[in-house]
């Protein structure tokens, strides 16, 4: 038999429920507002001309083609460098390391790296790379490599842990050396981790601005990839900042914001899809 609750407990019950619903409603409304506001303000400003030209001081026209290309270049350069480093580190940790102390030191270092704010990366990147090779996209990419190393390492490590021990033992039992086992058994097993890591890193690179402002600069020139990496350039986020804060071109800024918003949604969707797909495959 159910007894009626005392008045105090009833109030507690109702109050807590109300507060929770309020909080959830607030969060949901916030996301919805941001999404709708940015899209509504941004999409009308996206024109083919904006996407396909570079800014010209003569006509006062603004185009974001160079920024799109720069973003693409910096994503490619960062991933090309960070992938071997991150995957290699993860392989060392799960396959080779026998000294528990080294493992915990490396993992602690990765944790520290993922906690450092991007403005500090920007400063150190400026000291380390830009002061030696000049302000250029490559200096920005190298800075982003350090930032994204922990991400790639962690996702690869997680996927390596799911490769069954027996596979490795089977290969060893057949007389394969360690390197051969890593190459033929372990590496194919970490593909899903690498893909997830790549998607997460792309998201992070797209959203990064503080680390790039002082390392990659903010020029708007259309270049090929090699030339582009060697010269300064703004990515989409940096361009957004410059247009909004320094030039007051809010229409262009919102157009870029809308593009970034759509890309963020795509990346989030891709991450969940990949994770679901690989989880299914494994079970």
């Amino acid at each position: 038999m159910k007894q009626p609750l005392s008045k105090k407990r009833k109030i507690y019950e109702v109050l807590m429920k109300a507060l929770m619903l309020l909080a959830v409603g607030l969060t949901a409304a916030l996301v919805l507002f941001l999404l709708v506001y940015v899209i509504v303000k941004g999409v009308p400003n996206i024109t083919w001309e904006l996407l396909s030209t570079k800014p010209s001081y003569l006509t006062g026209r603004i185009g974001i083609l160079p920024d799109i290309l720069n973003t693409l270049y910096i994503v490619i350069a960062t991933l090309v460098i960070v992938l071997p480093l991150g995957v290699g580190a993860a392989i060392y940790l799960t396959e080779y390391a026998s000294n528990q102390r080294i493992v915990s030191i490396i993992e602690y270092a990765a944790e520290i790296l993922s906690g450092i704010p991007s403005i500090i990366y920007g400063l150190v990147g400026m000291l380390l790379f830009s002061n030696n090779m000049g302000t250029c996209l490559m200096a920005g990419a190298l800075t982003l490599v350090i930032m994204n190393l922990p991400t790639i390492m962690r996702t690869t490590q997680e996927s390596l842990k799911t490769v069954p021990r027996s596979y490795r033992e089977g290969a060893f039992g057949l007389g394969a050396g360690k390197w051969r086992v890593v190459r033929t058994v372990v590496l194919p097993g970490c593909v899903d981790g690498v893909i997830t890591g790549c998607i997460l890193s792309v998201g992070r690179i797209l959203g990064e601005s503080a680390a790039l402002l002082f390392t990659a600069g903010f020029a708007h020139a259309v270049n090929g990839i090699i030339e582009g990496l060697a010269s300064p350039g703004a990515t989409l986020t940096v361009a957004l900042y410059v247009y909004a804060k320094e030039q007051g071109e809010f229409g262009v800024a919102f157009a870029i914001a809308a593009i970034l918003m759509v890309l963020t949604i795509l990346i989030n969707f891709a991450t969940t899809t990949v994770q679901k797909k690989f989880a299914k495959k494994r079970s």
């Binding site: 941001l34 506001y37 940015v38 998201g203 797209l206 959203g207 990064e208 601005s209 503080a210 986020t237 957004l240 900042y241 909004a244 804060k245 809010f250 800024a253 919102f254 914001a257 970034l260 918003m261 963020t264 990346i267 989030n268």
Partner: peptide, 10 residues
């Protein structure tokens, strides 16, 4: 995932 500059802009 929203870039911080977008928060700044809004």
């Amino acid at each position: 995932g929203i870039p911080s500059v977008v928060y700044g802009l809004v």
